[in-house]
Every structure is written in structure tokens, then in C-alpha cells.
């Protein structure tokens, strides 16, 4: 039986094994978080569109700020996951693995505090620009004499990727407004 080989050194769990497990766990958690964040972004976009259609500007802006914050989070998560996946797992890389894992853990804490604070991490101008765009879009739809926007239609419209201007605005988010990036260059 297996116990005969109990003393076999090869069957031990090493520090490398534990480091790999840690890394795999972090990757899974980041992936899960990315999926959740994606859903949140979609949801805020739908909410914002509905509020714009109802003329509730302030609350629409709030939803757009949230959407933007999640967008920044998503971007950051993408980088982290990529980083973790690119790491070549070998004995020599263990130290690198350890530090990557520590970074990912640190990130969890940072996201927590980001949400705890006010909207300091969000580009106000970009959020306002997006609101204006949504309003303009809504006006266009009215000019085309479409029936008044029903809830379901709004949801459908939101599923379509945002206009290019919006993407540019996101990319142009000033660096100091983002969470500090701990990734190695």
C-alpha cells in the first residue's frame, strides 16, 4: 500500500507546491471578481440610461460614476490576471510567484478602500461627458420619433457596446486618478 512509500521524498508537499497553489487561488479569485465587475458595469449602464430617460440627471451621473469606477477596476484586474498567467512556473520563479501573489492580495485590500472612500478615484469630467452623450443620444431617438423609451428597449440598447468617444474618455483617464499600479514594468 501507499504507506510503504511514506518516506519517499518525492511525495512531500514543498514550498513551491504551496506557492503554486497560492497563485492558482489568486488567479481564480481575480477571474471571479472580473466576472462580477463586468456584470456591475452592465447594470450601471442600464440604470444610467433609464434615469436619463426619466430626466433624473443627478442620479444618472451617480450611476455613471459608479460605472467608471468599475471600469477602472476591470482594467486593473485584466492586467493582474495577465500578469499571473504569464508567469512561468519553475523553481527559480518561486520568489516572483510569491511577490505576485502578495500584490494580488494587496489589491483586494485596495479595492475595498476604494469603495469605502468617496468618488475621488473617478474622472468627474468623463462622467459628465458620458451623461451629455447619453442625453444627446436620447434626443436623437426622440427626433427620429421613436416611441417613448420603454424599460426593455433601454436594457437592449445598453447591451450594445458604448460609443467610441466613451472608450477614449476612459483611456484618457489621468494616471493619478487610478489606483497606484504595483505591477512590474
Amino acid at each position: 500500500m501507499g504507506n510503504i512509500f511514506g518516506g519517499d521524498k518525492k511525495r512531500e508537499i514543498t514550498d513551491v507546491d504551496r506557492a503554486i497553489l497560492s497563485l492558482k487561488t489568486q488567479r481564480r479569485k481575480l477571474d471571479d471578481q472580473r466576472k462580477r465587475t463586468d456584470t456591475l458595469i452592465e447594470r450601471e449602464a442600464v440604470v444610467a440610461r433609464t434615469l436619463v430617460a426619466q430626466g433624473k440627471r443627478d442620479r444618472a451621473l451617480l450611476a455613471l460614476r459608479k460605472k467608471r469606477l468599475h471600469g477602472q477596476q476591470l482594467e486593473f484586474l485584466d492586467k493582474l490576471v495577465l500578469n499571473v498567467e504569464e508567469t512561468d512556473v519553475s523553481l527559480e520563479d518561486v520568489e516572483q510567484l510569491m511577490s505576485d501573489t502578495a500584490e494580488a492580495k494587496e489589491y483586494e485590500t485596495r479595492v475595498q478602500s476604494m469603495f469605502g472612500e468617496s468618488w475621488t478615484g473617478v474622472d468627474e469630467e468623463a462622467a459628465h461627458a458620458e451623461l451629455a452623450e447619453m442625453e444627446a443620444q436620447l434626443l436623437d431617438e426622440e427626433v427620429l420619433d421613436l416611441p417613448s423609451v420603454p424599460q426593455t428597449k433601454v436594457a437592449d440598447a445598453a447591451a450594445v457596446p458604448g460609443p467610441p468617444a466613451q472608450v477614449e474618455a476612459l483611456a484618457a483617464t489621468p494616471r493619478e486618478d487610478r489606483p497606484e499600479e504595483p505591477l512590474p514594468a
Partner: peptide, 20 residues
């Protein structure tokens, strides 16, 4: 594990369970 073909182990408190 009983057959000596695998080992189940835990890493850090927050890590998933591992199998070798």
C-alpha cells in the same frame, strides 16, 4: 491518498485546497 497516488493539502488560510 490512501493508495499513495495523491496528496491533498492546504496552503494559506485563504487559499483553495490543493492536490498533488
Amino acid at each position: 491518498e490512501e493508495r499513495g497516488k495523491a496528496r491533498v493539502f492546504r496552503g494559506d488560510a485563504n487559499d483553495d485546497t490543493g492536490v498533488k
